[in-house]
Design a protein around this nucleic acid. Structure first.
Length: 887
RNA sequence: GGGCGGUUAGCUCAGCUGGGAGAGCAUCGGCCUUACAAGCCGAGGGUCACAGGUUCGAUCCCUGUACCGCCCACCA
């Protein structure tokens, strides 16, 4: 791209679009897989957590994508061949809902279309709108390989799903069974345990008396769901509960129905709760189901799949909704005297995580994965460190979940998804589970009917790390890039997704799906509340990009991405970091006003100026630390380190220090300065690029005579041992102290900003040389008119003064200022010194400290004590002189 | 009920293996100094929640308490 002078302010919109197009047309982020296959240890790979195809980009995605992009871009700089695969998830229920709503607006239901037409309709919806979220991810600058976009219902991925299902079935790890499942009466499907949410609810706890069959009294049970008594098949008490000993083994009569129910004893019953007496309804309660299994109780379903009372309920209740029935039953129980008490009661009600409809436990035929053996693999891999979870605090949660895992219900009564590859012969009832669709049964019949259900969406996403690379084929991609390097995701899908990928990866690839798992924070609003549409506190990442630029958003998210802590985000923060992006822009603009391509190549050996040595030294440290921080996923520290270097070292000091040279007459000095400036600017652009790719690339392409147009492909700067210079750091700090002291006196004493001061510096030896060498810089940065540096001098009467280690500083004040202010300033300084000296002296007086602490620490404290006490003495003398002068 | 995390400046938070409390924003004072007023220079502000313990030394490690948040769980 053509080099033009940089615009006055950074205008992100145009810049971003230009580079996004560039990366796309050049396929910058498409790796050479053939090359990669030859050296797998030089590769780096990530699979994107596939967003729902119905999704719209939110801040969680923005954070997630930004962090992944930082790692991918950084690893490219480290010379790795990087593959980052993008894609979307077909999101069974969510997508079906969207299309059903669309149909509904035309007055149609999916049943009106029939399955085949409906699924066609969903596909067509996906073609039209399914790319939206990927376009949004694209705008974030994600350096994914767009030539490898995947979708969980792609042909290839569907093949993987089929292979896994059949294989697990053949190994007896997938089975079909009657089971009580979480049933959403609205979505009309079973849900996995973790797809159920709990919401607090104001309920009523009803106490109901069940008379004993022998007339010897009654048992009182407590329930919030009186309509389910119609399905009761037992009453349970605690085996050691004295109150009910005599009743165990007897029968009670179910009110309104008249069924005989056995009184059983089981330790599951909590004696403290309610009456200590529990009605057992195996068909409509998870726990009751287990007790029912244990005691061989009948499970009588009285509620149907739509949430209405079915024909197992007494005639009068049939066809009523659960809510209506509850009302009727309560009335009837009250009428017959069985209702003994009602009390308000706060409990939790189970809801569908998609539509918030109350979940009905429902007995039906479902498909399950026996996950115990898989869970063990998944546990072990983290235990022995084949996969590392960052931060480690999630290990416990992960283990705990795997240890208590129950079989995974994978069938869903939906139309959109991977259809279960199971056929039943209508002739001989043979069940066929095959890799290719069967046309004929072993008995010769062709009357084969496929299972109506589809698989849980998470079944296919569990295969994502290898299905996206072409499994079950043995592809070059798998060879080069599996296991992936890291998975970056939010903790909300640790169970849904991460744990299941671990299981499937270990089972089918015989290797972990990723070496590292980085669990990042949740992005909340500025008050710490979850962002949600209904609360109206959502900050739209795309709106922020439009307003402040993508780099501002990315840098903000990165700055707050401290491990294991939620991010409270507000627009003001993004706006704030835009200032930083603009600062970089302007610094570059300044630099490029002088760097014109005529300067010599940078050579650390010929750099002589202290400020050059210093900034090069700081740059070395930045390079090293920045790399370490990214390797350790300490994104916030990486961002902060960059911020401090660019703003407070490069801009505040270095650029100011080189101005006299740049505006000066010495062409040779000027040339070296430009060379160094260009070098530092270039390396900083590279280092910053993974976090803020756009502004850095734009600046990069304006730097004259660089070796590569595309910054994203430029390697990370090599370490420059020659540039490390501790002495320069120490000397520079000294100079900074001198300058700051002068500025401080100016400000505190209210000296006119325009006034050109006279400053006397008393220093000797090294310090004196240093000061003399940099007289111009000091004068410029502190606005000094006359600067004198001498080993000894008569201290003028009536001056402001400061004591720095190695130097005393005097500013004659005659006619300039009131001396009260100066005295106050000195007192403040003396107070500070006294306090610090006291702390150190006390420490050194403590024998156990001097004896036990490491010698190095003690020496440090001694040096401090010396320094403080010297300074204090010095300053006290100066104060005395000033007082004497004032009379 | 179990588990996890948090409590540091007015606000939002850093502080990685224990050794003189930091940043950004906000506040106050002064500056249009030719890269940047989206800026520059300077200043004020903290019993590091509380109580114990370990240590020469604790914001940091251990125990307990309080409050806040999250996750998991079968109290009808």
């Amino acid at each position: 791209m053509a080099m033009e002078p940089l615009a006055k302010g950074y205008e992100p919109a145009d810049v971003e679009q230009r580079w996004l197009d560039y990366w796309t047309t050049h396929q910058t982020f498409t790796p050479d897989v053939d090359k990669a296959a030859t050296h797998p240890d030089q590769n780096y790979s990530i699979v994107i957590p596939p967003p729902n195809v119905t999704g719209a980009l939110h801040m969680g995605h923005a954070l997630n994508i930004t962090l992944q992009d930082i790692m991918c871009r950084y690893m490219r700089q480290q010379g790795k061949t990087v593959l980052w695969i993008p894609g979307t998830d077909h999101a069974g229920i969510a997508t079906q809902n969207v299309v059903e709503r669309q149909l509904l607006s035309q007055g149609l239901k999916r049943e009106d279309l029939g399955r085949e037409k409906f699924v066609e309709q969903v596909w067509s919806w996906k073609e039209d709108y399914g790319g939206r979220i990927l376009n949004q991810i694209h705008r974030l600058g994600a350096s994914v390989d767009w030539t490898r976009e995947r979708f969980t219902m792609d042909e290839g991925l569907s093949r993987a799903v089929r292979e896994v299902f059949v294989s697990l079935y053949e190994q007896g790890l997938i089975y079909r069974g009657q089971y009580i499942v979480n049933w959403c009466t609205r979505c009309h499907t079973a849900l996995a345990d973790d797809e159920v949410e709990y919401a607090p609810a104001q309920s009523v706890l009803y106490h109901l008396a069940y008379p004993l069959e022998d007339g010897s009294g009654s048992l009182t049970v407590a329930t919030v769901r009186p309509e389910t008594i119609l399905g009761d098949t037992a009453v349970a008490v605690h085996p050691e509960d004295e109150r009910y000993q005599s009743m165990i083994g007897k029968n009670v009569i179910l009110p309104l129905v008249g069924r005989r129910l056995p009184v059983i004893a089981d330790a599951y019953v909590d004696r403290e709760f309610g009456t200590g007496c529990l009605k057992i309804t195996p068909a409509h309660d998870m726990n009751d189901w287990e007790i029912g299994q244990k005691y061989g109780l009948e499970a009588i379903s009285v509620i149907d799949d739509l949430g209405f009372m079915n024909d197992h309920a007494p005639q009068v209740y049939q066809g009523l909704s659960v809510a209506e029935c509850r009302k009727r039953i309560v009335e009837d129980l009250r009428a017959c005297g069985a209702l003994q008490a009602e009390e308000p009661y706060e409990n939790k009600v189970n809801q569908c995580y998609r539509c918030k409809t109350t979940i009905e436990p429902f007995v039906s035929e479902q498909w399950f994965v026996a996950v115990k053996p898989l869970a063990e693999l998944a546990r072990k891999a983290v235990e022995d460190g084949r996969t590392t979870i960052w931060p480690a605090q999630w290990n416990k949660t992960y283990f705990n979940w795997l240890d208590n895992i129950r079989d995974w219900c994978i069938s869903r009564q939906l139309w959109w998804g991977h259809r279960i590859p199971v056929w039943t012969c209508q002739e001989c009832q043979e069940v066929l589970v095959t890799r290719e669709d069967p046309t004929v049964c072993t008995c010769g019949s062709t009357r084969l009917v496929q299972d109506e259900d589809v698989l849980d969406t998470w079944f296919s996403s569990a295969l994502w790390p290898f299905s996206t690379m072409g499994w079950p084929e043995k592809t070059k991609e798998l060879q080069a890039f599996y296991p992936t390097s890291i998975l970056i995701t939010g903790f909300d899908i640790l169970f849904f997704w991460v744990a299941r990928m671990m299981m499937m990866g270990l089972k089918f690839m015989d290797n972990v799906p990723f070496h590292d798992v980085y669990i990042h924070a949740l992005v909340r609003d500025e008050h710490g509340k979850k962002m949600s549409k209904s609360t109206g506190n959502v900050i739209d990442p795309l709106a922020m990009i439009d307003k402040y630029g993508c780099d501002s958003l990315r840098f903000t998210l990165t700055s707050f991405a401290a491990m294991g802590r939620d991010i409270k985000l507000s627009e003001a923060r993004i706006e704030g970091y835009r200032h930083f992006i603009n600062k970089i822009w302007n610094a570059a603009r300044f630099a490029l006003m002088h760097v014109d391509g005529s300067e010599p190549d940078f050579d650390p050996k010929v750099m002589t100026g202290l400020h050059h040595k210093w900034i090069l030294h700081r740059l070395e440290i930045l390079k090293k630390e920045h790399a370490e921080e990214l390797q350790g996923y300490r994104f916030n520290e990486a961002a902060q380190g960059l911020y401090t270097f660019v703003w407070h070292e490069f801009c505040d000091w270095y650029l100011e220090l080189i101005k006299p040279e740049l505006y000066g007459e010495d062409d040779q000095v000027k040339a070296q300065t430009k060379a160094c400036l260009k070098h530092v600017l270039s390396e900083v652009m590279i280092i910053a690029h993974p976090i803020i790719p756009f502004v850095t690339q734009e600046i990069w392409s304006s730097i004259p005579s660089l070796d590569m147009e595309c910054l994203a492909l430029r390697p990370y700067p090599k370490a420059c041992p020659l540039c490390e210079d501790m002495q320069a750091a120490i000397d520079m700090e000294f100079l900074q102290q001198v300058i700051v002291s002068i500025r401080n006196i100016r400000a505190e004493l209210g000296i006119a900003p325009g006034a050109q001061l006279t400053v006397l510096l008393r220093a000797d030896g090294q310090e004196r040389d240093l000061l003399l060498d940099h007289a111009i810089e000091i004068s410029t940065l502190a606005r000094v008119g006359t600067l004198r540096v001498e080993p000894d001098m008569d201290i003028p009467k009536g001056c402001a003064s400061a004591v720095i280690k190695g130097c005393e500083l005097f500013i004659p004040l005659e006619g300039v200022v009131d001396f009260e202010a100066e005295l106050a300033r000195m007192d403040k300084e003396l107070g500070k010194l006294a306090k610090e000296l006291e702390v150190v002296t006390k420490k050194l007086a403590n024998e156990s400290f001097t004896n036990k602490a490491p010698a190095e620490i003690v020496a440090k404290e001694q040096a401090k004590a010396q320094e403080f006490s010297d300074k204090k003495q010095n300053l006290e003398q100066l104060k005395a002189k000033l007082l004497a002068f004032l009379g």
